[in-house]
Amino acid sequence: MNLFNRLMFLDRRWIFLLLALVCIITYVIPFEIPVTKTNEVRAIYNYIEALKPGDIIHLGVDYDPSSLAELHPMTYAIAEHAFRKNMKVIFTALSQNGPGMVDQAIRDLTDSMKLDRTYNGVFYKGREIKNGEDYAFLGYKPYPALVIYGMGQNYRIPFPSDYYGTPLDSIPIMKKVKNYDQVKCVVGIIAGNVADMWIVYGQGRYNFKLALGMTGVMGADYYPYLNTGQIFGIMGGLLGAAQYEDLADNQGPAKDGMRVQVFAHILIMIFIVLANIGFFMAKGSLMGKEVR
């Protein structure tokens, strides 16, 4: 069996092993790589950066733990950016395992916000963020399309009380909010078809400013909505999160993961090239044989 035939019959577990080694080695050796910022991520950052203290944004945390790796860094980066600028954040979770994600993010952000930090040359004194005053977590409701539609009429229709059981009218920041008209923008951090629902039943019906953060798998499908102006920004996958972290000067797990991502991609490209060379060179001798 020549080299090309060997390539075609290579046990795929060697590829897994090599990929794992590359990822672990690049993770263990700390170095930084530059991240190019795209216009669609910059648009989200610039919009939130331009808002005033006291403005309210809605952060839809519509993903399960299975997408945590890509989407949690976006939630952290945007929420911390908003809190540091003294904005208020309304959290909702339209994914069934989403409340745990929000709960964890709020706990971590509460700790992080107590620290003094300097971002992009601006000093932010640490402070305690309070439930009801700085943020409201409305919880989870099933049937996302109907919930998104209902919030456009009144947040109190799908969410008579928040996640902790407090009636919405008793929550200070919700007293000023009836529907999407009182929030400056909705940023949906989404895995799955809830993104379509935000566009069709939310932005399309009530015409509010909508930006989406989504898993890498979904990214390419939603660019048409950017061109129509239905959404004003997209963050796709870990790269989108890394770009936002970089813009906000708040390095987190996404930016940290970029060096691993780059080398893993290079390795995968090498594999693709090798597999194609192997396939074309061994084409004649492989007729009728099963390639792994």
Binding site: T215, G216, G237, L238, G257, Q261, A264
Partner: peptide
């Protein structure tokens, strides 16, 4: 994008 997504899960 899908490759990036799968690697991201492993990175985390």
């Amino acid at each position: 994008f899908t490759v990036m997504a799968r690697i991201s899960l492993f990175i985390q």
